[in-house]
Amino acid sequence: MTLLSTRNLTKRYAGVLANEAINFDLPQGQIRALIGPNGAGKSTFVGMLSGRIPTTSGSVTFDGKDISALPAHARIALGIAYTFQITSVFAGLSVHENVALAARRRLGRDGAAVDAKVADSLSRVGLADRATQIAGDLSYGHQRILEIAMGLAQDPRLFILDEPTQGLAESEIADFKTLIRSLGGATTILLIEHNMSVVMETAEAITVLSNGTVLADGTPAQIRADPAVQAAYLGTADA
């Protein structure tokens, strides 16, 4: 079953095409990586999926429903979680409150359920002992991990992560891979990632964007063997 699909999704910034007629299908439960050189339009694409960036034309379908006209908050309410490429936590609030805000939108006034969800999400990413710290006082890496915990606390059906491992230490990246693999199956994941080891070890399928269009789609093995991808991306990648 397809959870998310786009048809002819297009974004134009002042005449410049950032995304051109992207057709994209993401099956339920898959871990998909979205890769491509800098400026390929990856963030624009997921921004349009989550509703953060308005589309120029084309449609987005989630769980059989056309969500193209929905504002961002309504799409999130349908079960999409989104972590920002540039860390965006509530810097003035505690780590616990950051995650509670994420959990509370769905769990509502049930304080005990919210607290349980927060504790669970924080322990899954290894931040449980920092729950009372102010988020803004965390290191950059920990703030990125907090973002992931906020995503987990939403129990999303589709979890979009925009370069989650950027700025993480090697050991944290290893933990991240384990975490993503443990989510697979239950949660559908769309991962923008530059780190090829993360992509190759977690993704079941890979989509390559280049110059705003889909260059290739396939399993990690297929993508690795694709000469067009090698020419456009892998050959020049620093990973």
Partner: peptide, 24 residues
């Protein structure tokens, strides 16, 4: 209350609150 805490979240970072699914 949850309502008040959401208001505080909007004060701290409205874009993030919106992307947690709150109709800010």
């Amino acid at each position: 209350s949850p309502f008040g805490r959401t208001l505080i979240a909007i004060r701290e970072n409205e874009a993030r609150a919106k992307m947690l699914g709150y109709d800010t």
